[in-house]
Write a protein that binds this DNA or RNA. Structure first.
Lengths: 96, 96
DNA sequence: TCAGTATATTGATTATTGTCAATATTTGCG
DNA sequence: CGCAAATATTGACAATAATCAATATACTGA
């Protein structure tokens, strides 16, 4: 069944050890070259590219080209979306 | 690959449309009988039981028996865990 | 204890997802 | 243009997860 609920898409994007590792790295920096993700998780270049695509389509990350490189960053909307889901699921206070 | 990261386990538990629907319902109430989840998602009783087990083992819900029924509730720790993950991934302010 | 109801488990099947090798595309530079 | 480097896509396969039918277990009340 293809997902339509954007929250399920977002959660699915994060629910993978490789992708969550990527996001954790991105949370610590202002932008990471796709080529630098290969250091962490012993997966192939196509697999890295695939995971980054999943994160991008879920709205977790954004990307910009710089020459032959592509720089990935956390999406500026991600924090707000996380907060909103937390508000609806656990009664947390959403970001205003 | 079996998951060990508890955050991946938590996110995986939520990253399913049926389970997220259950959690949304639980967020609106103080406790729901397992038998009452059958109304929403047109899945069989064993499937409901399976999904509730996934949520329980991930720490999202807790359960208590009341007679032949089992009442499920959101785990009291869930909000804090959500908040902590948001803090680490998106720089959100964690619950104190 | 027995019958009835609710929930859980087992086993099998199907659907989805992660992974890689091979290849294509994009970009910068002589 | 032609080459090299970085990233993306395709196609195939393996691993994982969702689902159900059948069955087992737990509890209540007669």
């Amino acid at each position: 069944m293809k997902q339509i609920d954007p929250d399920v898409i977002l959660l699915s994007a994060l629910a993978d050890p490789v992708r969550l590792s990527f996001v954790r790295q991105l949370a610590e920096s202002d932008g990471i070259c796709a080529c630098d993700f290969s250091e962490c998780c012993s997966v192939s270049q196509p697999t890295i590219s695939h995971h980054l695509k999943v994160l991008r389509e879920a709205g977790v990350v954004t990307s910009v080209r710089q020459g032959t490189n592509v720089i990935y960053s956390l999406s500026p909307e991600f924090g707000r979306r996380w907060s909103a889901i937390g508000a609806s699921l656990a009664g947390l206070v959403p970001i205003s």
